[in-house]
Every structure is written in C-alpha cells, then in structure tokens.
Design a protein around this nucleic acid. Structure first.
Lengths: 330, 330
DNA sequence: TTGAAAGCGTTACCAA
DNA sequence: TTGGTAACGCTTTCAA
C-alpha cells in the first residue's frame, strides 16, 4: 500500500480510503490511486484490514454433509443471500457427529466469525457453551430446538413426519413401516422417526415396524437393503415412510426388482423433495421442506443481525406434503 | 493473551508458545498456562496469529456447483485430506461462470490463501493472470489443461467420452446421440461432447445427433426433455450418451413412461458413476472418474507443496467405463 | 478531502 | 526455557 501511495503521490491513508467504497476521496484522486494499484498488481490484504478494523467478514457454517442435495441447497441459498453483504463463509461439515461439530466450532471461533450458523438444535454441552460465550449471533438451522442457543430457522421434523403418517392413514393403510439410518447420529432423522411413532401411537396403530441401520447419510442402497429387511420381518407391511427420498427410491427399486407393485401392494414415501422424487417411476410422495429458503432466510437473518440490511419479516413456510404416484395410483 | 499471562505469572510470549504444539515450554509452565486460558475462557485469535506469522492457513477452492454429487465428493476428499494439516478451506462456487470464477478468485486472493484450487482448465484471461501472479501453488482439478497455470489433478473429459463411444460401437450401435447442457458454460461437458464427436468422426459414424440445452448443471428433468427432443428429430437413434448420470436417469425415465425398451430399443449411458447409476432400473452404464480421489490427491499435492507432508507419488487413475444394464441387457 | 499517529493481537527474532 | 522488542498491513481517530 505504501508503494501505491508513493506512485500515486498521496498518503497511504488516502490509498486505504480510495480502495473502499463509501469513503470521501476526490474523484480524480481515487482514479489515480486505482490506476496505480492496478499497475503495481497490488491486492488488498483483507486479513490485515479486518484485523485493524476488528471485523473479520466471516460467517462460520457447519452442516452434516456436503454431499446431500438438501444441505447443498441450503448452502446455496445461504451463499447467495450473503453475497451482497461481502461476508465470506467458513464451511465445515460434521459428518453427522456432534464431537466433530464441537471441534469445528472451536476452530472457527478462533477466526472470530461475525456469526455462526449450525445445523440442528442438538449439540455437545461444551459446544453450546462455546457458542453462547462467542458473543456473536448464532443460528440453528433445520430444526426447532426446545432450548435454542440464540435464533433458529427451521421446522419440526417430528411434525413433518406425522403429516406423512396422516396421509398413509387417509389412504387406508395401517401396517406402516419406517426406514431410517443409525438412530443416534442423524438427529433430524431421529426426530422424524419420533414423530412417526408418536403419531401412530396417538392413532392407536402399530408403530413397531422400524428398520434403522447404517450410518447417516442414508443412501439409495440402504433403501434397498432396509426394505428387504423390513419385508422379511413384517411381510404384510402396506406402507413405508423413508427418512429421505434417496432411501425411498432405493426401496422402490427393490420393489421393481422383486415384482412388488408400488403403491398397490405397498405405498412408499420419502422426505426432502429431491429431484428424483419427480423423475422416478413411480414418482415419490414426499415432504418439501424448502431447503433453499432455509439458507436464504438464515442469510437474511445474519445480514440483519450484523446490520447489513433491514429486518425482513420472512417466515419459513411449514413443511408441505407433496402427494405423488408412489402412494396414490394415477 | 495478556490476561492469561498475568494470571499464569508469565510473559505473553510464553503464553503464545504454550498454546502452540512443538514449542519449547516447560511442562509445568504449559499446564499452568492452559489452565489459566481455560479459566478465562480465552480463545486464541487465529487471524492475529496468521497476520503476525504471514501464514493464513487458508486454501481457496472454487467449484462450479455445490449441489452436484461429483463435486461434493471431490470437496469431501479435499476436506478430509487437508484436515490434518490444519488448513482451512475458503469455498466459493462459480455457478459454471468464468466471470464469477474471476470475481471469486480476486476476492479470495485478498485473503492471502496459501494455495488456490480451481475446477477446470479454462478461465478468463484476467483470472489466469491473477492466479499466476499470486505466488502460491495453483491446482486445476477435473481437467487436463493444454496450458496449465501450475499443476493439475484431472483427466481428459474428451478421452473419457470416446470410451463410451467405443462401447456403443462394440455393441453394434451406430445411430448414437448426445445429450448435454448449454455448451458454452460447462467446459467439462463441452469437452465430453467434443470427444464424442471426434471419436465418431474418426470411426466415420454420424455425429450430428446432439441436443444441448439448458444451463448447467444438467438435471434429471433435462434428461427427460432432451431425450424427447432427440427422438423427435432422430427417431431411429439406438444409443444415447448423456453428459451425466442424472440426465441419463431422466432419459431412461422418459423411455419407461413411453414404453421404449432400454437397452433393446435404445441404449442409454451416463457419466460420473453417481449412486443412482447402481440403483436405477435398469442400472446405468457410466464412466467412473474417481471424484473423491481428485479431492484427496489435490489435498496431498497442496499439503506437499506447502511443506506439510512428504511428496506422494499417487497418480489419479484414468476414467473407467462401468458397463451396466442400460446398455447391455442382462 | 487529506494526512499523521496510534494501535489491533500475535509471532519472529534475538538475548538472557 | 523464558522474556523483551519490533513488526506484520491496515484502519481508526483526530486534526488540518
């Protein structure tokens, strides 16, 4: 910056101002300086700038997995929503582990982010403490925590699951199964299972037909193997709710390969409104959770809390049931 | 840090050392200091540390899209490979736009990353210049650039595509089509199309049957609409190569809905070895490009170039043809 | 609109 | 093994 100042014949201070928007610098002076900077190939050191101004421009974000279309959509929405404010995302993925989340949060906090965004409302004790002490806005996404750390943008996974139970029941199905992953790690999946069981119990319908296996994320392949097991144990099952559209697709694939009619013999539903739910045959009845808007609204909330924008009164829509062929024959 | 020093009764300098590994501090002194830090809830300011030590610990990474299983796998591999070196990824996605890539690279360079990783070997002139002047290792992934900026970890998309052409021809198919996205933006997709055309021309087979539409990323839905168009224009097409497994799945879905036998009437192949290629019905013949290892090897290369590890002699395998039912009846 | 001085929180470097 | 001093590249603050 000193070199640029010399070349432009001004003080470093003026260079500093000229390189930022919204600063009072003579129009001609600014042009001179920008030319000088370009000529020298000067690139502002944002780290130093942030260090001096006590603002890092970082937003720390943790998600369970990058390789999941729902979270990817949320991240895309978040990223787009934050672009204008000039905030930079520090991204970490937890691999569905709370300990890993704690490790990441601790590491991120050392970078002094201006806000922290985490996925889910369940964390280790230490992680909660770190987040509370951080002194910056904390937003929990994809959940409706009982005891929020600060703010949240999400929905009740349990309530969403009971929508699907009600749908099955309205179709006259009563031997309903659930396919999900390793119950201890994917807390959103676990909440869906809880909602499933609770609603069935309320309706006085058998809620035992559950296959939970494999570490999250639950994949298409696990849909195949889990349905196989479910039908071995409870052959008369007439409906299955899967923890995601991916496993629902795998389950349908199992049926196709074994000449089981979907939905006539067994209705199969997913969760998440992935692309595949629209393109598979049959198309998959699912729950649309508006993943991208979770990211957008989180971005809006962050920008607002940090004073980059006016408060917006956007409210995330409730999860919606999308009925398709896999539960209702055309 | 001053407070911690006071509480522990040592100088700030000793605190600084005690909080880092591989530094010479008395065992007892270190313990005292760590206790003091814990008691005060002190969190190291990594930004300040990096500023003073001229090392940021950042690796800048740009990918076309987060919401793409192949890139997500690469990113996962990269992330895992970098974890031990303590490097932090600055992630940006370009939405398949070179201008956006340039903008991101410029922004990232202001953070003084220790290395830059970009996707593809095609960039704006200015972007190339910025990267060359950056003075840090630059790695281009997912491609085999004619004129690399620095290093690359990738493969020839054109060569990979000709593998598939040869496969079709070996099955006796000669009316072969190609389904891809908007040709100007997805340069890897474009390379695949080039390889497709070149190989057909070499074999003296018609290479006109191409449908390119829609902005990248090419989705399942575009597979449906593109195959519809392809068959309208060239109804006798007996094989189709799709730019990705997702569009291949869409194409197959179109066939199922319209009673077209796959592969008897038309063979359909994809690219990328996505999960769906194994679970769909029929399963999809595809090209496995080892996406995760692209990330892992890139991480190894970065770590090595930055002196965090010994050179490794890992060499990325060539793309492999995976033959499945969508081209070969069981 | 411009400039000068002080300082951000840490580490490098040298000395003890 | 420990401590003192300077310095990192910029912005804040105040003054001109």
């Amino acid at each position: 910056m000193l070199d640029v100042a010399k070349l432009a014949g001004v003080s470093p201070m003026t260079v500093s101002r000229a390189l930022r928007p919204d600063t009072s610098v003579g129009k001609k002076t600014r042009e001179n300086i920008q030319n000088a900077a370009e000529e020298l190939g000067y690139v502002l050191n944002t780290n130093a700038a942030n260090f001096a101004s006590h603002k890092t421009g970082f937003v720390a974000v943790t998600i369970p997995s990058i390789n999941n279309a729902n979270f990817a959509e949320t991240l895309t929405g978040l990223s787009e929503g934050l672009r204008n404010s000039g905030l930079q995302i520090l991204l970490g993925y937890t691999d569905y582990s709370k300990d890993e989340e704690e490790r990441l949060v601790e590491q991120f906090l050392q970078r002094r982010p201006e806000a922290v965004v985490v996925t889910g409302g369940s964390h280790t004790e230490r992680c909660r403490r770190l987040l509370k002490q951080a002194g910056v806005p904390v937003i929990e996404m994809w959940d409706e925590p009982e005891d929020p750390i600060d703010e949240h943008i999400g929905f009740s996974n349990a309530a969403a699951a009971s929508l699907m139970v009600d749908h099955f029941v309205s179709l006259g199905r009563t031997k309903i199964g659930f396919i999900g992953g390793d119950e201890m790690r994917d807390t959103r999946g676990l909440d869906r299972r809880r909602g499933f069981v609770r609603r069935l119990d309320e309706l006085d319908i058998d809620s035992q037909r559950i296959v939970s296996e494999g570490p999250p994320p639950v994949t298409m392949r696990e849909g195949v193997t889990s349905l196989t097991k479910l039908l071995e144990k409870w052959p008369d099952t007439d409906a299955v709710m899967c923890v995601s559209d991916l496993s629902a697709f795998g389950a349908i694939s199992h049926c196709i390969r074994n000449n089981i009619q979907v939905p006539e013999q067994i209705a199969i539903a997913g969760f998440g409104a992935y692309d595949i739910s629209e393109v598979s045959n049959p198309t998959i009845t699912t729950i649309d959770v508006d993943a991208k808007n979770i990211g957008k609204y989180t971005a809006a909330l962050v920008a607002n809390r940090l004073g980059y924008s006016e408060p917006s009164d956007l409210i995330l829509g409730k999860p919606k049931l999308l009925v398709r062929e896999s539960t209702t024959p055309i």
